[in-house]
Deep mutational scan, measured.
Amino acid sequence: MAAGGDHGSPDSYRSPLASRYASPEMCFVFSDRYKFRTWRQLWLWLAEAEQTLGLPITDEQIQEMKSNLENIDFKMAAEEEKRLRHDVMAHVHTFGHCCPKAAGIIHLGATSCYVGDNTDLIILRNALDLLLPKLARVISRLADFAKERASLPTLGFTHFQPAQLTTVGKRCCLWIQDLCMDLQNLKRVRDDLRFRGVKGTTGTQASFLQLFEGDDHKVEQLDKMVTEKAGFKRAFIITGQTYTRKVDIEVLSVLASLGASVHKICTDIRLLANLKEMEEPFEKQQIGSSAMPYKRNPMRSERCCSLARHLMTLVMDPLQTASVQWFERTLDDSANRRICLAEAFLTADTILNTLQNISEGLVVYPKVIERRIRQELPFMATENIIMAMVKAGGSRQDCHEKIRVLSQQAASVVKQEGGDNDLIERIQVDAYFSPIHSQLDHLLDPSSFTGRASQQVQRFLEEEVYPLLKPYESVMKVKAELCL
């Protein structure tokens, strides 16, 4: 049975990233139509530049190519590739079939990587351009969430054990800070992308030097003109047959890092959902379990974690691919890159769409948070109580021993009897502590235990987050809708 299948058929496997999760716009960027249309555009740009620099290419040939950029006979191309065992030459023939007058000058002087690699770089750039505003929107939604809850005390956790208090907004800023680093890295790697350009079979530009009869300047002009037509500021000066596969490492490393950030955020949300302090959106008709109707599973956060793990592992592909590119190139890269580049971007696209949807509907339960604080705060307040007693004339050592005994009794009630923490009640009825009984409410005010959390939130948002989001103001209103 021949390899390949009808990918629109229910009898043929289709990647869930495309069929179930990723956005239509990201799927289109990695589609065959987008790819092969870009090949034709690159052939047109090459012909236009070659004509401008004096090669015998007519206006009629150029116009014929322009008129057929979208006229792609995919069936013919597939048949040609089956016959020739070469995808680029299959599309040269297919393009030439609908451009008979231009057929002889299509791909003039070029090698397969002229269309293959340059198209990949265009796709990487455009895919990054799709991700950047999506990530900015996630940051914006979380920034709104953090600002609104900047002063809401909550129990902090280290080692997932109760620690000092923080605020809900401050905790959210930990998430935002990681995503801001990801946004900066995505922008950097996007701006650092260079075009492969017009380089020939081993990167020496020998074929173009021959076409222009040894004119170095025209060869350099050709490279520059096509690079500018493709919208790049610069091209690699040095290439082998391909652009260095280190570029793929750079791009997928940034995406993998984004995956790590999203995994951490969504894990926190899942843990908070278990504590009943916070939940992701839950639709009115949504079913959490087929057997347990009360369940409210954090399905979206779980999906993000599941896909983020996949995204983090994909960076190993370009690392290994770059390491086995012998001399000017081997074909070890080809099949692998067809999979890992598309999957990385479709996965990143999915987790950003999902995280935006989550961040637009996060639900906080202040009463649950308050109750958990009441359970733990008495123990945390013991040092403040000791200091207040010393100020009232008591002995630190005597007070410490009193607190120690009462704390152990209260802990026994919590752990052995399943009761509430009654340390404060014990202190309130103990005559030894009568000098500070009137101060206990103040000493137990949760806001006095959150330090500068709310001020940190305000400063972080104003100095770091809002300036970073400013270039994306025009796209901030787009909502994230999930079908599944």
Rank of each mutant, 00 (worst) to 15 (best):
D192G: 11
Y34R: 06
K415T: 07
C99Y: 01
R85V: 13
T201K: 02
P10G: 11
V457N: 06
F460A: 01
T382Y: 08
R196D: 00
T244R: 07
A47N: 04
T382P: 00
M476R: 15
R374W: 08
I57T: 02
T167I: 02
R338Y: 02
A392V: 13
K470Y: 14
I249N: 06
L222G: 04
E473V: 12
T52M: 10
T167K: 02
T94P: 01
L482T: 14
K479R: 14
F345E: 04
S434I: 12
R37C: 09
S19L: 06
L55G: 02
N71T: 10
N68I: 05
G96L: 09
C305V: 05
E473A: 09
V478C: 15
P298A: 13
E228A: 12
Q286Y: 03
A146G: 06
R426M: 08
M292P: 03
L155R: 02
C99V: 12
H310W: 06
F282T: 09
A381D: 06
L461M: 15
L482K: 08
T201F: 00
P281E: 15
E60D: 14
V198I: 15
K66H: 10
G109E: 01
G418C: 04
Q51Y: 06
L482I: 14
K101F: 07
E81V: 01
S19Q: 12
A163S: 12
F195G: 06
S407E: 11
G4D: 15
D248Y: 05
P10C: 14
V138K: 02
A49V: 08
V251D: 02
V88T: 09
K276H: 02
A22K: 08
L352C: 08
M387T: 14
L46I: 06
L179C: 10
S289R: 05
P378G: 05
E481K: 13
E148R: 11
V413M: 12
G259T: 05
K402A: 08
M299V: 11
L121R: 01
G5P: 08
I105M: 15
L319G: 03
Q375Y: 07
I427G: 07
S395N: 12
L193Q: 08
D59F: 12
S448A: 14
N297V: 05
Y243W: 01
I237C: 12
A78G: 12
K295T: 04
K147I: 09
P162Q: 11
K284R: 13
A291S: 05
I106T: 07
R329Y: 00
G231P: 04
R459Y: 13
T119P: 00
M181C: 13
K82V: 15
Q221A: 12
D144Y: 14
F327Q: 12
F208Y: 07
K101M: 11
C99T: 13
L377S: 04
